[in-house]
C-alpha cells in the first residue's frame, strides 16, 4: 500500500527552539505537508498527532532542562490529557503501532530516552533504560562532530549512510545505558545507530573533543527495534545547505547538506510503507 501525501509534525513549545529548521528539513526531505504545532494545540485537541505520519521532536531546552534535560516535559507528556480526555502518551504509542515514525534530535532525543521510547527493548515502550546526562567537560559545547553510522542498524532514517558530519550543541549529551546488559542488547540488536568518530569515520572514539561528551561507547544516537523511532544528539537539521559546513569556504562540499538524507529517508520510508 502506498500513499502520496506525507504529513510531518514538528512539536514546539515549552522551550523547544529548533522547530523552524526541523520543519524546513522535512520540506527539503520531501514531506508534502509540514506543520509546526505548539504543544498546547495538541492539548486543546486543535490538532491530533494521529493525523500525521512523521513526528519530529526538535532540540531546545524543554522547561529550561531545569530538572535535568527534558525531564519535566517527559512528565508532562506522560500524564497530560487532551481537552477530550485522551492521553497524549497513548496517542504516541498508537502512532508507533500504526507503523509511523518518530525523530528526536538533541533535546528531542533526551525526551525520547527519558520517556522510554528508545530503545524500548523488547517493545517495552515507556520504560526508561538509558539516559543522557552532563558532558564530562561539565560545559555546554557547540562543535561539529564526525559520526560513524551502523549500516546494519534497523534505523530507517540512516539507510544508505555510513558517516555523517554534524554539529553537536548540548550540555547534557553523555549517553549512559542503564546497565551492561542493556548496552549488550543495544549492540547485539544493532540499535546503536551513530557513534562519535574521527575524520576517517571508521571506528568509534572516546577521545575529547572528537567524542564531545564522554558518551559510553561513543554513542551519539540509538533507535528502537523497529528502527522507526530514532534519537540522536547531533543536529541534522543544522546542516541542510552547504554553507552550514564550518569549512565550506575552503573545502569542496556537496551542494546538499548531509543532514537532508535523514529526512529524505524518513519520507521515502513512509511513501513505501504507509
Amino acid at each position: 500500500m502506498s500513499r502520496k501525501n506525507i504529513r510531518a509534525l514538528v512539536v514546539s513549545g515549552n522551550g523547544t527552539n529548533c522547530e523552524v529548521e526541523m520543519a524546513h528539513a522535512c520540506r527539503v526531505g520531501g514531506a508534502d505537508d509540514v506543520d509546526i504545532v505548539h504543544f498546547s494545540q495538541l492539548l486543546q485537541g486543535e490538532k491530533s498527532l494521529l493525523d500525521y505520519d512523521f513526528l519530529n521532536l526538535p532540540g531546545g531546552f524543554l522547561d529550561g532542562d531545569d530538572l535535568g534535560s527534558a525531564k519535566a516535559h517527559a512528565i508532562r507528556l506522560r500524564y497530560a490529557r487532551t481537552a477530550h480526555g485522551e492521553s497524549l502518551f497513548d496517542h504516541i504509542l498508537t502512532f508507533i503501532q500504526q507503523g509511523k515514525i518518530i525523530l528526536g534530535i538533541c533535546n528531542g532525543f533526551q525526551l525520547l530516552a527519558k520517556l522510554g521510547l528508545v530503545p524500548a527493548l523488547n517493545g517495552a515502550y515507556g520504560t526508561q533504560a538509558t539516559t543522557l546526562t552532563f558532558n564530562d567537560s561539565g560545559t555546554f559545547e557547540d562543535r561539529w562532530a564526525y559520526l560513524t553510522v551502523k549500516e546494519k542498524s534497523p534505523c530507517i532514517f540512516t539507510r544508505g549512510l555510513s558517516s555523517l558530519y554534524l554539529p553537536v550543541r548540548h550540555g547534557e549529551g553523555k549517553f549512559i545505558p542503564g546497565d551492561a546488559a542493556v548496552l549488550q542488547e543495544l549492540q547485539d540488536k544493532n540499535l546503536v545507530v551513530a557513534q562519535y568518530t574521527d575524520r576517517s569515520c571508521e571506528k568509534a572514539v572516546m577521545d575529547y573533543p572528537l567524542n564531545p561528551n564522554g558518551s559510553v561507547e561513543a554513542i551519539a544516537g540509538i533507535c528502537d527495534e523497529t528502527g522507526r523511532v530514532f534519537g540522536m544528539m547531533p543536529h541534522p537539521e543544522a546542516y541542510l545547505h552547504y554553507t552550514n559546513h564550518p569549512r565550506w569556504t575552503r573545502e569542496p562540499v556537496p551542494e546538499e547538506g548531509m543532514g537532508v538524507a535523514i529526512f529524505r529517508n524518513a519520507v521515502e520510508y513512509l511513501k513505501k510503507n504507509l
Binding site: C18, T139, R143, A238
Partner: peptide, 23 residues
C-alpha cells in the same frame, strides 16, 4: 567562551565565529 554559546541554532549559520582548517 565561543564554544559555550550556541551559534548555529535556527539553522542559518554561514560564517561562524570560528573559521579555518581546524574550526
Amino acid at each position: 567562551v565561543v564554544r559555550q554559546y550556541d551559534h548555529e541554532v535556527q539553522g542559518g549559520s554561514v560564517i561562524k565565529p570560528l573559521s579555518g582548517i581546524a574550526n
